[in-house]
């Protein structure tokens, strides 16, 4: 169980998450929708433990354990995985080398034996086929010179190999054409299981046609304004944030000067 309770977080001294609560149980898929600047990516980074994203209140626990007290690598070992909106290019480190190092680091932290090179390659090729990552990309440097779509697929590949318990997909659909979107969604759906929770963060309803969520949450101005079943996404698509929540939610709050 991933439990977020009354979470508050700021970046550069500015509060972005303003009291957010969300519980994701094993086997559940939750979608978080929200406009630009609503705090979606901040939430994702806070959960993964990125530096500079300071938690000022509330708690996040993973099966009762304090997630916020863990280093990023400890969170990974505990089973949290963030598929990033902008995967980082790391020239000089081969994709498959990195992934094997990561897998073995996670296994080691969990007290499991390391995976042999041969077993790893077999697993990697299997998963790569499912998410549509070409062999050539496995040998190239991590994300280096990858197209937007290739990077997103590679994120899902990492997820498939590391087999986390809780996955957070941060705008995995951005920059994908419809075919890539389908492949990526198939990859994610393949990872749906009774003991894995998934949070899908997205701007658009489109992705949710392919990854059908159990719950949909509307995140605006740092708080979850509404929650509901998958139909809520359709409603939101039709009405817009303003139409659903009122005109004050149409966009970012105006700058202080304009408000005064």
């Amino acid at each position: 169980m991933l439990e977020i309770k009354d979470l508050r977080a700021e970046v550069d001294g500015k509060e972005i998450i303003k009291g957010l609560s969300l519980t994701v149980g094993p086997g559940e898929v939750h979608a978080i929708m929200g406009p630009n600047g609503s705090g979606k990516s901040t939430l994702a980074y806070v959960l993964a433990g990125r530096e500079g994203y300071e938690v000022t209140g509330g708690s996040v626990t993973l099966d009762g354990e304090d997630l916020l007290a863990m280093e990023p690598e400890e969170r990974a070992a505990a089973g949290v995985f963030l598929a990033m909106q902008y995967p980082v290019e790391v020239p000089g480190v081969a994709n498959m080398y990195f992934l094997r190092q990561a897998l073995n680091a996670v296994r080691k932290a969990r007290g499991e034996p390391e995976v042999s090179a041969a077993a790893f390659m077999k697993k990697l090729r299997e998963k790569a086929k499912i998410v549509g990552v070409k062999d050539e990309l496995l040998k190239r440097d991590l994300n280096f010179g990858f197209s937007g779509g290739e990077k997103k697929r590679n994120e899902i590949l990492q997820m498939a190999v590391l087999e986390p318990r809780y996955c957070i997909l941060d705008e995995t659909d951005s920059g994908l054409d419809i075919d890539a979107l389908r492949t990526v969604a198939d990859g994610v759906n393949g990872l749906r299981s009774a003991n894995r929770g998934i949070i899908v963060i997205t701007h658009y309803q489109r992705l949710l046609d392919y990854i059908v969520p159990d719950r949909v949450h509307v995140l605006v101005q740092g708080q979850i304004q509404r929650s509901g079943s998958k139909e809520l996404a359709l409603e939101l698509e039709a009405a817009g944030y303003g139409g659903m929540l009122g005109p004050e939610f149409t966009s970012e709050p105006p700058p202080a000067a304009a408000r005064a």
Binding site: A48, G49, R50, E51, E71, P72, E73, R75, A76, A77, F81, L82, M84, P87, V88, V90, F98, L99, Q101, A102, L103, A105, V106, A109, Q158, L162
Partner: peptide
């Protein structure tokens, strides 16, 4: 950012 990326995949600091 790269450091965080690698750590978020489980690699120790």
């Amino acid at each position: 950012v790269a450091l965080f990326y690698l750590r978020s995949r489980g690699l120790p600091l």
